[in-house]
Computed example of a mutant assay.
Amino acid sequence: MREIVLDTETTGFDPESGDRIVEIGAVELMGHMATGRTFHKYINPERSMPDEAFQVHGLGDDFLRDKPKFAEVGAEFLEFIGTSKLIIHNAAFDIKFLNAELRWMNLPQIPWEQAIDTLAIARKRFPGSPASLDALCRRFNIDNASRTLHGALLDSEILAEVYLELIGGRQPDFGLSAKQERSADDISGDWTPKPRPTPLPSRLSEEEAAAHAEFVKRLGDDALWLKS
Results as ranks from 00 to 15, higher is better:
residue 92 A to P: 00
residue 143 D to F: 09
residue 80 F to V: 07
residue 117 D to W: 01
residue 89 H to T: 01
residue 127 P to V: 13
residue 92 A to N: 10
residue 110 I to V: 02
residue 109 Q to K: 09
residue 144 N to L: 03
residue 108 P to N: 06
residue 99 N to M: 08
residue 142 I to P: 07
residue 123 R to F: 09
residue 101 E to W: 09
residue 138 R to F: 03
residue 99 N to L: 02
residue 140 F to M: 11
residue 97 F to C: 05
residue 93 F to A: 02
residue 136 L to H: 03
residue 106 N to G: 13
residue 95 I to E: 02
residue 84 S to G: 09
residue 140 F to Y: 14
residue 143 D to I: 03
residue 119 L to D: 04
residue 94 D to T: 09
residue 105 M to Q: 15
residue 87 I to R: 02
residue 141 N to V: 11
residue 131 A to M: 04
residue 122 A to M: 03
residue 142 I to L: 13
residue 114 Q to R: 12
residue 116 I to D: 01
residue 108 P to G: 03
residue 115 A to E: 04
residue 87 I to V: 15
residue 97 F to H: 01
residue 82 G to Y: 06
residue 118 T to N: 00
residue 102 L to D: 01
residue 86 L to Y: 02
residue 82 G to V: 05
residue 79 E to M: 13
residue 128 G to L: 04
residue 116 I to W: 07
residue 93 F to S: 07
residue 122 A to G: 05
residue 108 P to M: 11
residue 110 I to C: 06
residue 106 N to I: 00
residue 100 A to K: 05
residue 104 W to M: 14
residue 138 R to G: 08
residue 117 D to E: 06
residue 127 P to N: 09
residue 115 A to Y: 06
residue 120 A to M: 15
residue 111 P to N: 02
residue 100 A to S: 15
residue 132 S to C: 07
residue 101 E to L: 05
residue 125 R to D: 10
residue 81 I to K: 10
residue 79 E to N: 13
residue 117 D to Q: 05
residue 113 E to A: 12
residue 130 P to F: 15
residue 98 L to W: 03
residue 124 K to N: 14
residue 142 I to D: 04
residue 144 N to V: 04
residue 86 L to S: 09
residue 141 N to E: 14
residue 128 G to C: 11
residue 116 I to P: 00
residue 113 E to L: 10
residue 103 R to P: 00
residue 90 N to T: 04
residue 142 I to C: 06
residue 136 L to A: 07
residue 138 R to A: 11
residue 86 L to N: 02
residue 144 N to Y: 08
residue 94 D to P: 04
residue 120 A to V: 12
residue 142 I to A: 05
residue 133 L to F: 01
residue 116 I to T: 10
residue 116 I to V: 15
residue 116 I to S: 01
residue 144 N to K: 08
residue 94 D to Q: 00
residue 137 C to G: 13
residue 110 I to W: 04
residue 140 F to I: 06
residue 88 I to H: 02
residue 121 I to Y: 06
residue 88 I to L: 00
residue 90 N to L: 06
residue 137 C to S: 07
residue 99 N to K: 04
residue 93 F to Q: 06
residue 126 F to H: 09
residue 123 R to L: 08
residue 118 T to P: 08
residue 137 C to T: 05
residue 125 R to W: 01
residue 104 W to C: 06
residue 135 A to E: 08
residue 95 I to D: 03
residue 133 L to K: 06
residue 79 E to D: 13
residue 103 R to E: 13
residue 139 R to Y: 02
residue 100 A to G: 03
residue 100 A to Q: 12
residue 141 N to S: 14
residue 124 K to M: 11
residue 90 N to V: 03
residue 126 F to A: 12
residue 104 W to Q: 12
